[in-house]
Lab assay of single mutants.
Amino acid sequence: ITGDVSAANKDAIRKQMDAAASKGDVETYRKLKAKLKGIR
């Protein structure tokens, strides 16, 4: 179950990262990237 949750989280975070990148929001992008590392 835990694996599914983190996989879903990663997917959601990647989508947020894409949105931040397209807006040029480097700050948010970095925060999300750090979150991704924390999940692993």
Rank of each mutant, 00 (worst) to 15 (best):
R40N: 13
I39H: 06
S6G: 09
K31T: 02
G24V: 03
K35H: 05
A21P: 01
R30V: 05
I39Q: 07
D25F: 00
V5P: 09
K31E: 13
V5N: 11
T2D: 07
I13Y: 03
I13W: 04
D4Y: 03
K31A: 05
D11S: 10
N9D: 13
I1N: 11
A12E: 13
A8Q: 08
S22H: 07
G3H: 09
I13R: 00
G38Q: 13
R30S: 03
R40W: 13
K37G: 07
A34Q: 07
T2R: 12
A7E: 09
K35L: 15
V26D: 14
K15E: 06
I13H: 02
K23T: 06
G3Q: 08
Y29D: 13
N9H: 11
T28Q: 12
L36M: 04
V5I: 12
E27P: 05
A20E: 00
G24Q: 03
N9R: 13
G3F: 05
D11V: 11
K35P: 00
A7P: 08
A8S: 11
A7W: 07
K31N: 02
M17Q: 01
Q16I: 05
R30Y: 07
K10C: 15
D25H: 00
K15L: 07
S6N: 12
A21W: 15
M17E: 00
S6V: 10
D11F: 00
K10D: 06
A8N: 11
A21D: 03
S22A: 14
K15Q: 09
D4L: 11
G24P: 00
M17D: 01
R40A: 14
A20F: 01
K37H: 12
K31D: 09
G3P: 09
V26H: 12
D4R: 13
T2W: 13
K31S: 02
A21Q: 07
L36E: 01
K15A: 10
G38S: 10
K31F: 03
S22I: 10
K15V: 06
A19T: 06
V26F: 15
V26L: 15
T2E: 08
K37I: 12
K35V: 11
A7G: 09
G38A: 11
K15P: 01
I1M: 08
K31G: 00
I1E: 09
R40I: 14
N9E: 13
G24W: 03
M17A: 02
A21R: 14
L32I: 03
V5C: 14
D25A: 00
G38P: 04
I39S: 06
M17I: 04
G38F: 07
D25R: 00
A7H: 10
I39G: 06
L36F: 02
G38D: 08
R30I: 11
S22E: 09
D18E: 14
V26R: 08
D11Y: 00
A12V: 07
S22G: 05
L36V: 01
K33I: 06
R40Q: 13
Y29I: 13
S22T: 08
G24S: 03
T28Y: 08
D11T: 08
Q16Y: 02
K37N: 10
R30T: 06
A20T: 02
T28H: 05
K35N: 02
R30M: 13
A8R: 12
I13E: 00
D4E: 11
N9Q: 13
K33N: 04
R30H: 08
K37E: 15
D18Q: 14
R40S: 14
K23Y: 03
A19H: 05
A19S: 05
V26K: 13
R14D: 03
K37T: 08
G24R: 03
R40M: 15
D4H: 12
K35E: 05
T28F: 05
K33V: 06
A34S: 05
I39Y: 06
L36T: 02
N9Y: 15
Q16K: 06
A8E: 09
S6A: 07
N9T: 12
T28R: 09
G38H: 11
D11I: 11
S6Q: 10
D4V: 10
L36N: 01
E27K: 05
K10I: 15
I13T: 02
K10F: 14
K37M: 10
A21Y: 13
D18P: 00
K15M: 07
K35Y: 10
R30L: 15
A7R: 12
L36Y: 03
M17H: 00
A21I: 14
I13P: 01
K35I: 15
S22R: 14
K37R: 12
N9C: 15
T2V: 11
T2A: 10
D18F: 12
A21C: 15
G38V: 06
V5A: 06
A21G: 03
D18N: 09
D11K: 10
A19I: 13
E27Y: 02
M17S: 01
K15S: 05
A12F: 11
E27Q: 04
A8K: 10
G3L: 08
M17N: 01
G3Y: 04
K33M: 11
I1D: 09
T28M: 09
S22L: 14
D25Y: 00
R40E: 14
I13S: 01
R30G: 03
A21F: 14
K35T: 04
V26P: 03
A20Y: 02
D25S: 00
D4M: 10
Y29V: 13
Q16D: 03
K35M: 15
A19E: 14
K33Q: 08
K37V: 13
A19P: 01
A12M: 13
L32H: 01
D4K: 12
R14K: 07
K31Y: 05
A8D: 12
V26Q: 07
R14G: 02
A19W: 06
A20Q: 01
M17W: 00
